[in-house]
Design a protein around this nucleic acid. Structure first.
Lengths: 149, 149
DNA sequence: GAACATCCTTGAGTGCACTCCAGCTCAAGC
DNA sequence: GCTTGAGCTGGAGTGCACTCAAGGATGTTC
């Protein structure tokens, strides 16, 4: 294929940095990276798609360690189909839980916003900002995203 | 009030560790902490509610820095109502965006799970796992949660 | 009044996910 | 054939949010 390319282009097309891509590879998240005569990494369209998937999973909270597992499974191809499916399905469950958690948080946030609105309008603190206890005091649910840039 | 308590109980009731609570205070996230004769921190029911709110905000991706800002505003009480509301409203917008993002990711994950299911059933790779390109290649959206315990 | 739990402060250490740097090689353009 | 740019490796550094440890003081229980 004449359409293969080097790391710079992959970085440009996937929105991550060259350093991150190399680091991902070292972490075992990028299978099938060839080298050209000069020792430079050569990528294909498949790598773009793969990085996009990785990105989606990362952004929904999958850790590098889990991604490494998943990558290892895909490397085995057909032989590990069941595990691949299971891993992704389990992640789907976690994502659904997190969405539910965040949706619940949103209700509290919106209620607080309204509360401030009332307070401002009336000039005095409204009766109740009802005790917004975390519903499951001991549940120790998922933690928060980190955002950058 | 005879119902006030020390840091250990607050930790127990809010699900965080004693160290974390002290660290939060140092970060400016816990206003109105009194001390008893022996120099120990004394908390009230309000602190439980406050920590629960903090927790909700943290878990939906608000950084310590933003929480510090918000805390500073609430310390000003009525005087900063508008800013308090604005900060929370802005956070609500980010939460909504993230939920949308995660929901979208979920569609991809479910599609992949189905894809694996088909593959397993048919014994051969289904025609398309359509190119799951990230819709906005350059958008650089929110990053992922961190989970622990 | 001795043991033991709980609290205090200061400061260092941890884990994760990058991110940057130094010093080098390689390829392409002029 | 020399500069320029992109890529290479190994390793150190960063930012965030805790987490732990050392060395003491205080309070409670028997």
């Amino acid at each position: 294929m004449a359409t293969d390319f080097h790391i710079g282009e992959l970085a440009g097309r996937t929105g991550r940095t060259v350093d991150t891509i190399r680091w991902y590879e070292k972490q075992g998240l990028i299978p099938g990276v060839a080298r050209d005569a000069g020792g430079r990494r050569v990528y294909t369209e498949n790598h773009v798609a793969w990085l996009d998937l990785i990105d989606r999973l990362r952004r929904t909270g999958m850790s590098i360690a889990q991604l490494r597992q998943y990558t290892a499974l895909t490397r085995q191809g057909k032989a590990a189909l069941k595990e691949q499916r299971a891993l992704l399905a389990a992640h789907g469950v976690r994502v659904r839980e997190t969405i539910a958690d965040w949706t619940e948080a949103l209700a509290l946030i919106d209620a607080k916003v309204d509360f401030y609105g009332e307070w401002m309008k009336k000039g005095k603190r409204p009766a109740v900002m009802p005790h917004h206890r975390a519903k499951a005091p001991r549940k120790e649910a998922k933690k928060a995203p980190k955002r950058r840039a």
